[in-house]
Design a binder for these strands. Structure first.
Lengths: 231, 231
DNA sequence: TGTTAATTATGACATATATCACAATTGAAT
DNA sequence: ATTCAATTGTGATATATGTCATAATTAACA
């Protein structure tokens, strides 16, 4: 069960991007006049890689997966996105194309704001610009880290890290719903789905986790952390 | 033989970051008053990953390698940097730490500008801020691309791509000096140095390139492109 | 110019990981 | 409940790639 709770005005909205707090009442009103809400059902595509990026998209509720479509139809899931997230991608400021795709995992509510408006506000409000730079930088920093992880760790480490990512960054609990299929877990950790299945099995045998197809409980966080760090 | 040609003033300097063109005379003077030049010999470290990032660093001349220090002493070379490049890394705006290291390959001349000054100018000049965002975005976009390359291509494709990177982006010629060792080429393409040697040998046998330890000539660009794209 | 250290090169082998084929299970839709 | 499609799970095998040992070059330098 979900309720969409259509937003009345940006002024009273607590589910958008935290950087909007830097805006004046007039700037916020400008944004508010130029925004459009949309909802997406699970598996629906919110952003399509390669398409023209005219809008900044903010997740208001729900979960989505951010992924790159690579060679020979192979995807690479970069991260999950939840509410208060700006989705746009660096391509916006370079070639006006989205450089990744985003698909809804749960029911998703999103707010579309034309990028001309965002650019206006960036020019007019240095605090907002700084926040924007910080957001870009934060994402780039995580990407640098992910790069190291994917290239230097082996499968066990990469999978352990993914499980800790769900636990720590998304669900904030040692027990959580596994919203990705084994196939998708593979796309996130750059391994074949069969390898995902096998290693999850090993983790279970060693009493590190308890897993069903749609849920995970972390039983031995210390061990999982060591595996994640030792590679 | 090189000459350092110490810069007299930013106002007349053509070797710095193109985004400085957006600055007014006064802003440029502020920058000029707060800058420090330094030179580095080959293999000297210009930026050390993890150290506090108080300065933006601009390459005025020479070549440097940008790399992350990963697990178990294994490096990952992200790219080469030449003149007109801003070196700082996204960490600057997040945790005030450099997230990568930079080491001189040739003799390097660099300009250090305190980040407080840069931040001042970002706040005061929307055009500069926009240019800054564009620079950050451009780098993030390349990183996204590199991520796909490293995770989805196999060795031949990754090495072919690296050779094309040198030819197209750095030396603008089919024949160029190989400034990296086989070991470093491996750090750039995420493969063992022995594999680099072997595959360079294969490329030579197929008359795709002619290579010596310190030089490369591309003989069959079409074939190299196909290998790079087909993975 | 000879001597050492570093790099490049080569072959044998080990191992991580993907692929393929197929069985078991689950979930959705009649 | 029954059927179908999708996902999960398992074993056998193939392949890409790393590791180790060691030789051949090349570069550094006293």
């Amino acid at each position: 069960m979900y309720t969409d709770n259509k937003i009345i005005s940006c002024e009273f909205c607590s589910r958008c991007w935290s950087n909007f707090k830097t805006l004046s009442a007039e700037e916020l009103e400008l944004v508010n006049k130029n925004r459009y809400e949309a909802t997406f059902k699970p598996s629906e595509i919110i952003i399509k890689q390669g398409s023209p990026s005219s809008n900044a998209i903010f997740l208001l509720s729900g979960l989505a997966k951010v992924y790159m479509e690579g060679y020979a139809g192979k995807n690479l899931i970069l991260n999950l996105a939840e509410s208060k997230t700006l989705l746009a991608g660096p391509g916006v400021h370079v070639n006006s194309r989205y450089c990744y795709s985003v698909a809804a995992i749960t029911h998703v509510q999103a707010c579309f704001i034309n990028f001309d408006v965002i650019r206006n506000v960036i020019s007019a409000n240095p605090g907002f610009a700084a926040g924007f730079i910080e957001d870009l930088s934060d994402k780039a920093l995580r990407l640098h880290q992910k790069m190291l992880n994917l290239t230097q760790k082996k499968m066990h480490g990469r999978l352990a890290e993914a499980l800790l990512y769900f636990s720590d960054s998304i669900f904030h609990s040692d027990e959580f719903e596994m919203v990705l299929s084994r196939q998708e877990l593979g796309e996130m950790t750059n391994m074949a789905k069969e390898s995902v299945v096998r290693i999850i099995g090993e983790f279970e045998n060693e009493n590190i986790i308890h897993a069903t197809p749609r849920s995970v409980r972390i039983l031995n966080r210390e061990k999982l952390l060591v595996i994640s760090e030792k590679g």
